[in-house]
């Protein structure tokens, strides 16, 4: 790199001295040369300029000779394709470049904002072990399961209950998102990180299932909130399968969402809502307001 810099600067110097020569030639004899011996002085000046040019030329030649030619053809990568289509308009390069730039800018901005917001909550479910010896070993937490293992676990839960069916999709590369259908009563979509549940959305049987939109029915909005609470209640980083087992047992009890009355008050409806709360241990139905 150094050599390249040196040769480039030598080239610059040469160019400027040649420029000087042409400049003085163009101007001819000027007033500075005085009255006597104008021509001699002018010729002397020209001679000086030309010797400078000669020295600079020698410098450039020296610098260039000490440069090594590159070992092979340059690896241009994708920019090699730039040479194929010379018309700027046809390339659509500028447009896509601008979009890429905007996209990366936005990605930076959003991730900064997200980091700020998420760091405000100091409650975390992952355990950080600051033991030096263990730092080099990858901890097998609930979120480190490989996709085939996750698939196996889900298949076993699918078989466990006859009226609950589970199907797995992976729209976000390796993390599973499962669709659970409970009889004709409700449908839910659960997003996982490995075997750890991240988010649940519960909707009615005839609604479009989607991770981002809530159900339009109040009863299912309540059930979604309860599902999140139960998910955190059962969370155990050391026994992820036990967590899932208890969660699905609890979830399965919702098959009687509309057909069971509240255990405490005996009615089906309380402020026009059925009993949406299920006791985590006994799985008895209660209204949220009646829960023990």
């Amino acid at each position: 790199m150094e050599q390249l810099q040196i040769s480039l600067s030598a080239l610059k110097v040469l160019r400027s001295s040649v420029g000087q020569v042409f400049y003085s030639l163009a101007n001819g004899i000027r007033a500075e040369h005085g009255e006597d011996n104008k021509e001699n002085k002018y010729l002397l000046e020209l001679q000086e300029l030309l010797t400078t040019v000669g020295t600079n030329l020698r410098d450039v030649e020296q610098a260039v000779n000490s440069l090594n030619p590159p070992p092979g053809p340059f690896n241009l990568g994708n920019t090699a394709y730039l040479g194929q289509e010379t018309t700027q308009d046809r390339q659509a390069l500028y447009g896509t470049l601008v979009n890429v730039y905007k996209w990366t800018d936005k990605a930076h901005e959003y991730s900064n904002a997200a980091h700020q917001i998420l760091s405000q909550n100091s409650l975390k479910r992952s355990s950080m072990n600051s033991n030096r010896a263990k730092r080099n070993r990858i901890q097998t937490g609930a979120h480190n399961f490989s996709p085939p293992q996750v698939d196996q676990v889900m298949a076993s839960f699918d078989r466990l209950y006859s009226d609950m069916s589970i199907s797995i999709t992976r729209p976000f590369t390796s993390n599973a998102v499962i669709h659970v259908t409970l009889g004709h009563v409700l449908k839910a979509i659960i997003a996982f990180k490995g075997l750890m549940m991240e988010r649940v959305v519960v909707k009615s049987y005839n609604e479009q299932l989607d991770l981002w939109s809530e159900s339009r029915y109040k009863v299912f909005q309540r059930v979604t909130d309860h599902a999140h609470a139960t998910m955190l209640h059962f969370y155990n980083p050391n026994f992820p399968e036990l967590t899932l087992k208890s969660f699905f047992a609890w979830f399965h009890s919702f098959i009687s969402l509309f057909s069971d009355s509240c255990k405490r008050c005996g009615l089906y409806l309380h402020s026009a809502l059925p009993p949406t709360w299920r006791d985590p241990k006994s799985l008895d139905p209660y209204h949220f307001e009646c829960k023990p």
Partner: peptide
Amino acid sequence: RPSVVPANCWELIREF
């Protein structure tokens, strides 16, 4: 509206 099978929620509607 949340339910699609009458058998599930008949009692519930009746109570309402």
